[in-house]
Nucleic acid binder design. Structure first.
Lengths: 249, 249
DNA sequence: CGAGCATTTGACGAGTCTCAACCATGGTGG
DNA sequence: CCACCATGGTTGAGACTCGTCAAATGCTCG
């Protein structure tokens, strides 16, 4: 846990003048996707932020822990999950580079966060961060937007968990990951290879299924020529439209 | 759709001095639970707000509609749901009096909202509301807190949908409703009567089950002496702890 | 009181989970 | 360098939950 050296802050002002009122202070982008703040806030964040390494399998914090820091993921992939008394677990989201892990809105964490591989996070004392939020409407707005995005994602997952059969859940999952890893859609059509940073057990816990059912879905897709599996966590998408059709059957 | 006459605004300042910085302007409570704003914002909201009646079964807006207004529910109960191409539907939340229906964070609505019974909503043009948000950090903060609360709720639902068997889903649902309708826990122990504003089909769509499975769960609870059903949408909780135990079986 | 709708109940089958064996991969130690 | 082991993934058989379809019952409202 040391003071970070570089913070990925780009020093150009926002591209287009913001619509939300006259722009009094220069706005900069923090090292987190789409997170914006005034130059002043940005500087303060840089001063307060420290970087922390989390090794594979270690947990960053537990559900119901009181929130001490705002966290941002700068390297690796993490899972955020909830537990039931008897050990059943449900992964609520996978966290990828550039995303906010936890920032505001709660007293206590609503899920446990654990590293899938080795990870690096940026942490800011929550109290200081809250002060910045209160003073910097632009920062506040961008954090709220992130929160809204997370809400939207969990709502979609709600639909998936409540109303989709197993194979459809898995195909939806694959297409989601593909889009996340290839946002500009450059090489979608012919053959795109997904790297799955998580184990089958995690996919199962994310989709509300068992390991076996997930595995069977993968096998079925392979038999049907929709995907190939050069190794367990490398998925070669061969027929994207075919996968999308999985639901409509 | 007419200008509202009374807006439920209490004219006392916040009970305890807010921790978030020095208090420059008086803070008032809007007609929505926990929604706070400066006196100025409050007045402006009052001016801009209009009240609108929605009859049972009518829909307020559809998923993917662009957001024109911020909405607050002042009377009745509504359901917010998502649809799949082939007609399957998943209710994401039930909206009760005093809650924000939609306020900020998105370009388009993420779910369709429909009235369960006759409802009354308060609506403010989104653009004006966004301006207020940008100027009033206290309002912004309280809206963000509401958003976080909704997120928390949907995350819980995620766990329920992904990892609980049918009877446990139903018992959890009943206990949740009981708590909502009796927040001060006054008459919990002996016998508390819940009014269900929604039909079995809605409960099913909320819990990711079918009407029949929900009905069977109710019947089982009645056979086991945990509840009584004087009529289909009146639930008499007789053994709260018994219901809570439903999960651990 | 009767029509229409919501809810309950029953019988059956499909889909998913459980349990168990098998296979592939990567790391370790002889 | 290779055999061995540990771990994670796949495959199979059977059980069980929940969904489907169908019929019966009960409630609500004109």
């Amino acid at each position: 846990m040391e003071i970070i050296t570089s913070i990925n802050a780009t020093h150009r002002p926002a591209h287009r003048p913001s619509k939300s009122g006259p722009q009094l202070t220069e706005v900069r982008q923090f090292g987190v996707d789409g997170l914006m703040a005034s130059t002043a806030s940005c500087a303060q964040m840089r001063d307060m932020a420290s970087s922390k390494k989390i090794h594979a399998g270690e947990t960053l914090f537990w559900e119901d822990d009181t929130i001490e820091y705002a966290y941002f993921l700068t390297d690796g992939t993490m899972k955020a999950y909830k537990l039931l008394p008897n050990g059943r677990s449900q992964i609520v989201r996978f966290i990828t580079v550039g995303e906010i892990i936890a920032a505001t809105g709660f007293e206590a964490h609503t899920y446990t966060v654990e590293a899938l591989g080795d990870c690096t996070v940026l942490q800011l004392p929550k109290k200081s961060f809250d002060k910045l939020l209160a003073k910097d409407p632009i920062l506040m707005k961008s954090v709220t937007n992130k929160l809204a995005l997370e809400l939207q994602q969990v709502q979609k997952q709600n639909l998936l968990l409540g109303r989709m059969p197993a194979t459809e859940r898995v195909s939806t999952f694959l297409l989601d990951i593909a889009e996340r890893q290839n946002p500009d859609r450059s090489e979608i059509e012919s053959g795109f290879i997904i790297r799955l940073p998580m184990a089958r057990a995690d996919i199962a816990d994310y989709l509300g299924l068992t390991i076996e059912t997930v595995s069977r879905a993968f096998s079925k897709f392979r038999r049907d020529g929709l995907i190939d599996l050069p190794r367990p966590n490398l998925v070669h998408l061969q027929d994207q439209t075919g996968l999308q059709r999985q639901g409509a059957l």
